[in-house]
Nucleic acid binder design. Sequence first.
RNA 1: CGGGCUGUAGCGCAGCUUGGCUAGCGCGCGUGCUUUGGGUGCACGAGGCCGCGGGUUCAAAUCCCGCCAGCCCGACCA
Length: 596
Amino acid sequence: MPVKPVRCEHLVPVVADPAAGPAIPAAACQAHRVGVGRSEERLSRGRTPVDQQPTARTVGEAEPSDVHRLGIVCADDAPEAQVQAEAAQGAQPGGQNSEPARKGSGLGNLKIMARDQRSVTPQTEDFAAWYNDVVFRAELVDRGPVRGSMVIRPYGYRIWELLQADLDGRIKATGHQNAYFPLLIPQSYMQREAEHVEGFAPELFTVTHAGGKELEEPLIVRPTSETVIGEMMAKWISSHRDLPLLLNQWANVLRWEMRPRMFLRTSEFLWQEGHTAHATAADATAETMLALGFYQDMAGQTAALATVPGEKTPGERFAGAERTFTVEGMMRDGRALQLGTSHFMGTNFAAAFGITYTSESGTAELCHTTSWGMSTRMIGGLIMTHGDDKGLVLPPAVAPYQVVIVPIGRGEQVEPTVSAAIECAATLQRAGIRTHVDDRPQASPGFKFNDWEMRGVPIRLELGPRELADGTALMSRRLSYRQPEAVKEAIPLDAAPDLLRAELAAFQAMLARRAADFRDGHIAVVSSWPQFAAAVAVGWALALHCGQQACEDEIKTETTATPRCIPLAGEPDQGACVRCGKASAYGTRVIFARAY
RNA sequence: CGGGCUGUAGCGCAGCUUGGCUAGCGCGCGUGCUUUGGGUGCACGAGGCCGCGGGUUCAAAUCCCGCCAGCCCGACCA
């Protein structure tokens, strides 16, 4: 992935929006937490006569192959100018009704709750509040009863399943096999690799009692599975013929979190962890890079995220690893999010767990191991990369519903429009397009439009008497290529499957392109400390660094920015450290950014 | 764990300063009518251990102490 550096002066505010009105102090936004409505119940209760035909309602699901087909699209479908226009578009304030609420005099500003409860906090006003509004209102998650826990609701879980299916395919296609290892790990296992224990000690959950009695040896709830899997690998590997051993598991892990944040930092999260053992360091290194490629590819092709792959600096390395690699994503507020990570362990774990093999020449040798993971955090990355003031924006490849059909009609027209919608959905479904019919009788069309836009559905079709008469549907995109956004387009129903497939592919490409442009526009090559500080305030800084831990710490204290990675594609460069002036390390520039 | 803020109906809030009427309002929810092409309107209705536990008082949503939870800012992290 090429890093296109721009000069510092090209940096722009994260979201340029002169129309957004006065900024409101974050403290005042307290009042703004948005709760979760009951529309889930509504969905299940709103039975209509037409609904007795169960085939049609949210008909089926696309085949995994369709997901891949949609996911891999060319990024050049949308002309640059349109993409630029979109970027500006995304920054516009949300729904039509949010305007009156935002103006208002001094006192009004303190009472933000005066704003329409139906719209989300604008990103420019408070990005964190915006994020919270979106995850709850789009019904991706709900809060669990225990601090730091998260309930992933059906709409959010479907996104995870789509990501999962994509990555699982990539993992299996390269010869890895899925397995499952236990949640509970003897405490002694954790202690065998010195750095590993030390690194994880502050975040461990420990089980001290079972069956009403205190355990002789406490159990650890896995924060990651290197230790159990290492133990099993030692048992399973004896000859070079057993290598490489390529394992993966989909699992939950628990790590105590001081400051939970939905998807980004919760005490329990879902992930995939790959664990492999190899004869040589070269093989293991190649594996490490292969896995990193999974994440980079899936982030770019499927999630439409813009990333920079690189190596972690020693201070950011995984506990127990020799080298750690990462795929860093750029969020719309200019912060970095680690989307996937891949570790070369050398022989550290092999030595700790006795993972050895007999070589061809008969000598006993230590294996070289790797591990790599991608978690539900990726969903947070999706939200913060594509979302706007109307709410979520989902790339078609991971959208639970790629198309939502809103039947429109009153009185006697309800039945025919709803059945037409259901029929249309069935056709699209057969064409591999995930389609949903919103036939809630009590909600007005306008409400549904806003609702599905908030939930990020890429394409909406309106089907009313007029369309029925001439065999068309009115299509509108969550983000359009044209201005003004509200433009709707009539499409012939009989050509809908092909047309929509193309639309979805174009939409996917447009998002990927937009994200890449945003990333490139927010990475600045900096050569002085003031430039550095300015750059990390709004985006990423590409800087020469001495590599000293103390210097890193100072940078962090002063700017809250940390080294995110040493880009793999970084051009050779050296000189004075941007902070302390000593000779630079790493042979190339390092990305510094504020991170999640 | 430190600093700041907040817990009253599903959600958003008022009431608390100065203790006392039946604890209110908006949205949402239910029923009926009316409506439906960008967040329909009207009527009626349901819904509240006022975060939890103690204390002061004739009397506590209101005052005092403790605890718990959530949000924002710092140290940790996929």
